[in-house]
């Protein structure tokens, strides 16, 4: 039997309900969200500015550096594992900073380690983001008052984009933090005129 006249039964059904005189084309998609619904099933075209696509790509494949110092590291591992899967956000862990664009500082940073944190941050290529996960990375955590060798917050060493509170934060909180970072990334203007 020859090929179906419309090529595919589903397509035929959709073509029958679709009115070919509907306005399709660039005019209906000036909104920067991929408004392919108004364009018809075979017009898989998205129109937007360059920032949209660059930021969309960046936020959907945030490769994070496996930098787990202390207890928050276990929550990070559990967030990336079976139940709270970070891979569905496109986030896979990389062991080397040269291939990662997100540094999740999970755990206490001591003075002995501070030098290495800075070096790891400098080894990451641009664009890079830092999430401070947990109380110890935010402000020094439970060791703020009495400890003599804990850096009171990783933002004393490197610039931080998102702070996630908790000791340790639940994996849901970590995912919320990553989604907040994704919002920050979507808002960034890469090519616009510098005001």
């Amino acid at each position: 039997m020859g090929p179906h006249p419309a090529g595919h039964p589903g397509r035929e059904r959709r073509e029958m309900t679709h009115d070919p005189s509907h306005g399709k084309g660039g005019a209906g998609a000036s909104a920067p969200t991929g408004a392919s619904a108004a364009l018809g099933p075979e017009a898989h075209v998205l129109v937007g500015n360059a920032d949209l696509f660059v930021n969309w790509a960046r936020k959907s494949s945030l490769w994070y550096l496996l930098f787990a110092t202390a207890c928050c590291g276990i929550e990070l591992m559990q967030a990336g594992a079976s139940r709270y899967d970070l891979d569905r956000f496109g986030a896979v862990f990389r062991a080397t900073p040269r291939q990662s664009d997100l540094m999740l500082v999970a755990g206490t940073i001591t003075h002995k380690m501070a030098d290495r944190v800075k070096r790891l941050y400098e080894q990451m290529p641009e664009p890079k983001y830092v999430i401070a996960m947990g109380s110890c990375a935010n402000t020094g955590g439970p060791f703020y008052k009495d400890s003599y060798c804990v850096v009171k917050g990783v933002d004393l060493l490197i610039p931080v984009d998102v702070y996630i509170p908790g000791c340790p934060p639940r994996p849901e909180a970590l995912i919320d933090g990553i989604m907040a970072l994704q919002k920050i990334i979507m808002r960034k203007k890469n090519y616009g005129a510098k005001a």
Binding site: A114, D115, Y148, K152
Partner: peptide, 24 residues
């Protein structure tokens, strides 16, 4: 760290103000 000054668990230890420029 190798260049830390003092021995912290002594009862008369005074916490340093900063180490390598970072506040202790």
């Amino acid at each position: 760290p190798e260049d830390w000054e003092g021995h912290p668990l002594r009862k008369d230890y005074k916490y340093p103000d900063s180490y390598h420029g970072i506040k202790v």
